[in-house]
């Protein structure tokens, strides 16, 4: 492949994006990822960067109803999409999402760095219905690493919500 090594700046692309209900019309360099756009562009630093390469799940957001690693999504690609991040899980009046409540109750985090990703993943997981057994939750939450090792508590939190919602 011929390498164009001449130093140059990026081209920019225009896009619209709805984040947690608020719509944005933006122009960003084409190489901007959704994660960097959320964090650096929109100041929504809840979504975390734990690897920038799809290896950890800390950047998980819900894009058009599906959980994805926002570090591997080009912002340009999500033009016209709806994004839900950890900042958008609680209701506008501040009432926490049941899974957020359960995370606190079950101490499902320590440092809290993986937590936004775990929560977005967990909320999507409940929607998907992959909460029928403990093994199923473990496997379907395996895209979110937690170096603090809060896994048993995360499992307990998800299980509790799944049971309450009749999904376990």
């Amino acid at each position: 492949m011929p390498d164009d090594l001449s130093p140059r700046g990026p081209e920019t692309v225009a896009l619209t994006l709805t984040v947690n209900g608020a719509s944005h019309a933006l122009r960003v360099p084409a190489w901007t990822t959704l994660l960097d756009l959320l964090r650096e562009g929109l100041g929504l630093t809840g979504s975390k960067k734990g690897c920038d390469h799809g290896q950890c799940g800390a950047c998980t957001v819900i894009l058009d109803g599906k959980r994805v690693n926002s570090c591997l999504v080009l912002a340009a690609r999500s033009d016209g999409s709806e994004v839900r991040t950890v900042e958008g899980l609680a209701s506008p009046d501040g009432a926490l999402h049941p899974l957020q409540e359960a995370f606190i109750k079950h101490d499902a985090f320590q440092c809290g760095y993986c937590t936004p990703g775990q929560l977005c993943s967990g909320v999507a997981l409940l929607q998907e219905g992959h909460t029928r057994t403990e093994d199923e939750i473990r496997e379907w939450m395996s895209g979110n690493l937690c170096r603090c090792g809060a896994y048993p508590n995360i499992l307990a939190a998800i299980l509790e919500v799944a049971r309450k919602e009749g999904r376990a």
């Binding site: 164009d4 084409a30 920038d52 390469h53 591997l72 080009l74």
Partner: peptide, 21 residues
């Protein structure tokens, strides 16, 4: 999906002049 291509572009392994989405 970009899960491999964007990954490799960040590592400077893939260096496409253009992306056709």
């Amino acid at each position: 999906g970009g899960t491999n291509l964007i990954d490799l572009m960040k590592y400077d392994v893939e260096r496409p002049a253009s992306l056709l989405d």
